[in-house]
């Protein structure tokens, strides 16, 4: 049985780790303790890419393309 939980003091964790643990609970997608470090590392890599997107000055009128037709 894989244990999942918030066993660390929230104040000892980085903001990203606190986000991950909270989102995991809210979205009912548990992160087993044994894998938490690897998931956090993957989230860090994704967050670095997300920051690039966030930092790009996109015109406000641009609509999303969730169903893309090239």
């Amino acid at each position: 049985m894989l244990r999942c939980g918030n066993k660390l003091d929230m104040h000892e964790q980085s903001p990203a780790e606190r986000y991950l643990r909270s989102a995991s609970v809210l979205l009912d997608l548990p992160i087993p303790d044994v894998f938490f470090a690897e998931v956090a590392a993957a989230f860090e890599v994704i967050s670095a890419q997300a920051a690039l997107i966030e930092g790009f000055a996109l015109p406000e009128a641009v609509e999303a393309a969730p169903r893309f037709v090239p």
Binding site: L29, V39, A42, I53, L58, V62
Partner: peptide, 25 residues
């Protein structure tokens, strides 16, 4: 780990990425 971390991303990132996609096209 990448699938789990990916599923937990904020919706804001994905919406912005899809908006960027339309611009990039």
């Amino acid at each position: 780990p990448r699938l789990l971390a990916g599923a937990l991303q904020p919706a804001e990132t994905i919406l912005r990425a899809q908006r960027f996609r339309a611009w990039f096209r």
